[in-house]
Amino acid sequence: MEQSNWRWGFNRWLVLAFIIASVFAARAYPPIRPHVQLPAEPLSHHPLFTLPVIGDFYLTNTLVALVLVDIILLLLAFSIRQQAKNGGLQMLKGIGGAVEAFLEALYGMTESTAGKWAKAIFPYFATIMLMVLVANWMELIPGVDSIGFLEKSAHGYVANGSFLVKEEVAHGTEGFVVVPWIRVVSTDLNFTVALALISVFMTQVIGVRAQGAAYFTKFWNTHTLFNKPVFGAIDFGVGLLELISEFSKILSFSFRLFGNIFAGSVMLFVIGALVPVFAQSAILLLEAFVGIIQALVFGMLTMTFMAQATQGHGEHHEEAHA
């Protein structure tokens, strides 16, 4: 490494050069605060098709991101499959090895929590984890959320060619906003709600598979209702609360992921508009961290709830009162 022997380094000059370049870039084209919109923006003016009950179906920018996530994961899975097919059951090479090590760590975590049900629970954990992780980290790619069509809007900016200029439009006329081609799929509530629904629903499925019909005594607990007058009534009430908490799980799952990632991307916009030079880099590091933490939390909570569902509620209860 010749560069590391240089007294003043090399990379620090690169960083300085980029900072100076960004100062000039921000002077020439001052960044504007993008329009924040909660639902995904449709990219097409005409619906792709219209379904009888659901209504019009547009191609939205989050769907584009979803397709990208799918392609990345499918390529990974395909390369692992090919390697496993050709190379027997040896170690995987390249990025497959990294994925393998990652999945091995996840499996170890699942096994230590869920025991013999690890094989049934692990695919949900790993799929949620991988999808959310890839989706979250897509936010870090330059151009995502910032390159797109110019759309006419009531509160937009003046457009100069294909760029927006930081200039308020004259009152009464229409300005333009950017509709990005790719918007991180985690900022689409459809994605997070879908994952949360699957997670909670599959938790019930695995609970029934593990315990049979006895699983539902967790929600409709009449075991002790008549033997122990006061505690029985409390147990019954707790069962009902469990039922409510299952629904609140959907809410907290979906809005936790959505909130963190949406807030992160809004913070990136705002910081980028306020301090156009350098500050965003730190926020990007933070967002990378938040991205993996949220993926881990979503997957691990799913795994833990599933593991709890496989264990009888009764034993826990006895322990609690003992």
Partner: peptide, 22 residues
Amino acid sequence: LGINLGYLLVQIFNFGIMFVVL
């Protein structure tokens, strides 16, 4: 909030496909 039954179903089916394939 942008929640739409059609998109929701698309996401769920997509998850199913990815689940099986992975």
